[in-house]
Design a protein around this nucleic acid. Structure first.
Length: 863
RNA sequence: CGGCUCGUGGUGAAAUGGCAGACACAGCAGACUUAAAAUCUGCUGGUAGAAAUACCGUGCGGGUUCGAGUCCCGCCGAGCCGACCA
């Protein structure tokens, strides 16, 4: 098959065009102030989620999104935009480090090799990236600025009065370390013994590590945290102005998990300290019949009675040894232990038994709840199992069973709340609690602060040192930005230490910053580098700043200078394409950093990505997710070898809607390959010797009215389809166009002058090659196909004198008739009623109404 | 259990509330060829019919509408995500 003669000589011209584009910098986007910059051109920033260059290379799934953005980039250039379309590498990360450990090669070497392979694969697809802007997160010239941004976080705080991130110097208190956006905390973390590292909650799936699937346990460790929760509110509300899929916005909202409720203080009968509880249903306070603390709650040891101590400690041990997986799986059946303590219900002085149970999580709210079994499913199950009191305090509307009823209703058995609706009761009790100093209304979030340190070698070192203060206690201090970048030392042994000490702790030389100070040995997580790469692309070589003011302003807002008073709501990357797997984490983290830098005055837009599009997953030919173990992975290399890059690009776009999940089919590739062959033969003819020459059928003749109609309908449809990301239907329209012209001889060469520019974003190599060939004979074909202005359709060619109308009787198709395009309604009605088929269908019936839709149909309603 | 997305030929899929199945794939028949490949032509939702044509048809049941694949309600099924979030 591979040796088979190709339908058109793509093996020769595809690589030739790729080198020509590279050589003459065809897709270089000039920055303000650079040669070639034209201030009259509007900007368009189209971005792919840059890849992690794994050892596996790209598969056809990666290529889908990249092809879509490439089509948009090429389209926008032809429409006169200054298009920024960059590519780079998210190259820090665990797989490279683990591969290094296994093979003894330095991750820097394997990473460089993987990048070279990825780059070659991308270039073989003819993508129009501006390669002069290539960045890698592992390059010291890049991560120097990642570290610089960390310093911004370290040196700033969230001012609750202004609700903005401000320099730490505006903090009026005496303990700045308590408010910094980057802070140190002793946290129970997800420790993965196999990987020898701590993982973020997001990297743990069903109690196992996302990478490798190793078991993960909880253990307390000193960690760097980022105070993302300070911006929780804005991370929700500022989603509103973004052109993102609603589903993704919802995912982010749910992840942040805002809920309104109240904090309520319960005093404990035998303790000096109260226990605080968060509830979204303060209106059910009179229905609280017991209280539950999380087994890890710090108050548990103090309040536990002597009689219950053994049972409580036993239960704590049991829960502690369970992985998160077991804990949630076994959670179907409620478990718990009585502490022997009693809490006092602040509204009525009732004594409530205090239990511990693992269905209450330390990580949410205060780690303690008031249990209202009558109106909460979990409390109801628990109370039923342990025979605790259940008291109704909400009357459901229309006579529903009140047991376990969690909806809104009317308050009962609640003294001064009785008769109030749920909403009113919430308001009243919250005000009452506040007045008595027993609680207050509050908003709680599921979002936790971001665990930002990793015990790894292959990541950005922190620009932090530890030195002893007067009391001999170690204290962290930020390095000056002049000391950046902090580069990892070259080490032969970067294996995990097996303890919580990171591999960098073995670099004894590097570790020592001065007589009194040592370096932080943790490194940043992989997310760090990808949080701001879209900014660096705007000004990738800048050694003075992470991005120049001019470049930032131009590529984010389209204006050369944006004064503070003109700050934009819209702006940023115009189009961002990538998979849904980054719907919460990467996108949330990047938005967080962007907002911090925005508040600190380094950026001109509050959001990084104006428009987001998610491409669907491409399944293997067997309809299963592509994976090495299933053996159903299709690589671009094999497809390009056999059918060429243009066929691969075209097929990826022809498969179906971009956002949809769809299976791969080699037969489908063959289909678009045949189509490209037909386009080729529109212009070229094979000689006896097997060479190609310009087809003698091509003549400088006018298009017929019908040909003009097809041509202009194609311009119109392809243009609007590209704007709507409906690439599959754009391609089918170009197939219609081609089918119209292959059968005609002589063939108007003007048809190709329309088709080739339309086709060039999709199949750029073929379009360039044919355009250049035609230029040798027809002087009309100047320059390059990819540099042509985008064709514009003329509506006058689409109008036809006679249109076919369909005639329905009661919505059922009965006849078709031809009529003048602008015929009057009354005339059409008369024509339709005169049709024999209509008469057949209406005899003996009364015509009630006739609906005429101009140019489309006539519907006769009979009774 | 909850949320989201989606159910259309043998397959991938089209269809601003207005001719369901465009464009492809596969299949069948034919042309070219010694033959094959490639290419080209025709047919290709189901049932009945030689055909014209007729009837049926977008997961199921209701509703809105002159008219529903499309909008609304309820079910069934699939995929993805989140799952004890108080």
């Amino acid at each position: 098959m591979a040796a088979q003669r190709k339908q058109f000589p793509f093996p020769e011209f595809e690589t030739r065009w790729q080198s020509r584009w590279l050589e003459d910098g065809a897709f270089r986007a000039p920055n303000p102030g650079e040669t070639g910059f034209d201030p009259a051109k509007p900007k368009y920033y189209v971005l792919d989620m840059f890849p992690y260059p794994s050892g596996e290379g790209l598969h056809v799934g990666h290529v889908e999104g990249y092809t879509a953005t490439d089509i948009i980039a090429r389209f926008k250039r032809m429409r006169g935009f200054n298009v920024l379309h960059p590519m780079g590498w998210d190259a820090f990360g665990l797989p490279a480090e683990q591969f290094a450990i296994k093979t003894g090669q330095h991750p820097r070497e394997t990473t460089a090799r993987n990048i070279a392979r990825f780059k070659a694969q991308l270039q073989a697809l003819g993508f129009s990236y501006d390669w002069s802007r290539e960045v890698s997160t592992t390059d010291p010239g890049y991560f120097r600025w990642t570290q610089w941004i960390f310093l911004q976080l370290y040196n700033s705080w969230h001012n609750p009065t202004t609700k903005k991130i401000e320099p730490i110097s505006t903090y009026p208190g005496s303990e700045p370390d308590k408010v910094r956006l980057a802070y140190v905390a002793e946290m129970p973390v997800n420790w993965c013994p196999a990987l020898g590292t701590v993982l973020a909650n997001e990297e743990v799936i069903d109690g196992k590590s996302e990478v490798g699937g190793h078991p993960v346990e909880r253990r307390p460790l000193r960690q760097w945290m980022l105070r993302i929760t300070a911006l929780a509110e804005r991370l929700i509300s500022e989603l509103d102005g973004l052109d993102w899929p609603e589903g993704i916005k919802l995912l982010q909202k749910n992840w942040i998990g805002r809920s309104e409720g109240a904090m309520v203080k319960f005093s404990i009968f035998n303790s000096r300290f109260p226990v605080e509880v968060f509830t979204t249903r303060p209106d059910t306070l009179f229905g609280a019949t017991y209280m539950v603390l999380s087994p890890e709650h710090p108050m548990v040891p103090q309040i536990t009675s002597a009689a219950q101590r053994a049972a409580v400690e036993d239960y704590q041990k049991q829960v502690g040894s369970k992985s998160d997986l077991e804990r949630t799986e076994l959670a179907k059946d409620k478990t718990g232990v009585f502490t022997g303590a009693f809490a006092v219900n602040p509204v009525n002085g009732e004594l409530l038994p205090v239990w511990i149970a693992d269905y209450v999580l330390m990580g949410y709210g205060t780690g303690a709840i008031m249990a209202v079994p009558a109106h909460d499913q979990r409390d109801f199950e628990f109370a039923t199992k342990f025979k605790l009191k259940i008291r109704q305090v909400v009357q459901p509307p229309d006579g529903e069973n009140w047991q376990g009823f969690t909806g809104d209703g009317k308050a009962v058995n609640s003294q001064f709340l009785d008769g109030l609706s749920t909403t009113e009761a919430k308001k009243k009790i919250t005000a009452w609690l506040k007045e008595k100093g027993l609680g207050q209304g509050t908003i709680n979030y599921k979002l936790r602060d971001w665990l930002f340190s990793r015990q790894r070698y292959w990541g950005e070192p922190f620009p932090i040192i530890w030195e002893a203060n007067e009391n001999g206690k170690l204290k962290h201090r930020a390095l000056d930005e002049k000391e950046l970048p902090v580069v990892q030392p070259d080490m032969d042994d970067f294996k995990p230490t097996g303890t919580a000490e990171p591999p960098l702790s073995k670099a004894t030389e590097w570790l020592k910053y001065s007589e009194k100070a040592t370096r932080e040995t943790n490194t940043m997580p992989q997310w760090a580098g990808s949080c701001w790469y879209y900014l660096r692309f705007c000004d990738p070589k800048n050694s003075e700043r992470f991005i120049s003011k001019d470049a930032e302003s131009f590529w984010m807002t389209g204006e050369l200078q944006t004064s503070k008073s003109q700050l934009r709501i819209r702006g940023g990357v115009d189009l961002y394409v990538g998979g849904t797997e980054h719907a919460v984490l990467h996108l949330l983290y990047a938005r967080f950093w962007h907002k911090v830098l925005f508040d600190l005055g380094h950026l001109t837009t509050p959001e990084p990505f104006q428009r987001l599009v998610n491409q669907g997953i491409i399944l293997g030919p067997d309809n299963q997710k592509m994976s090495k173990s299933r053996g159903n992975v299709v690589t671009p290399d094999t497809v390009i070898e056999e059918y060429g890059a243009d066929s691969l690009r075209l097929y990826e776009m022809f498969m179906g809607p971009l956002e949809q999940m769809k299976p791969w089919s080699m037969k489908g590739v063959e289909g678009v390959y045949r189509f490209l062959g037909r386009v080729w033969r529109l212009a070229m003819e094979e000689t006896q010797e097997g060479d190609w020459k310009i087809s003698p059928d091509l003549k400088e003749i006018d298009l017929t009215p019908e040909q003009l109609r097809v041509a202009h309908a194609t311009i119109k449809k392809v243009t609007s389809d590209v704007e709507d990301f409906a690439f599959n239907t754009a391609i089918s329209q170009m197939m219609v166009f081609t089918n119209e012209f292959v059968k005609t001889t002589p063939r108007p060469v003007a048809a190709l002058k329309i088709l080739l520019p339309l086709l060039s974003p999709f199949a750029p190599h073929l379009a360039e090659e044919l355009w250049e060939n035609l230029g040798k004979k027809f002087p009309d074909f100047k320059g390059r196909a990819s540099a042509q202005p985008w064709p514009v359709h003329d509506e006058k060619h689409l109008l036809v004198e006679e249109v076919e109308l369909i005639v329905q009787v009661n919505g059922k198709l009965r006849d078709r008739l031809k009529a003048k395009r602008d015929a009057a309604d009354a005339e059409l009605e008369k024509l339709a009623l005169a049709s024999p088929k209509v008469q057949e269908a209406t005899t003996g019936k009364e015509v009630v109404k006739v609906i005429v839709i101009k140019g489309k149909l006539i519907n006769i309603v009979v009774k």
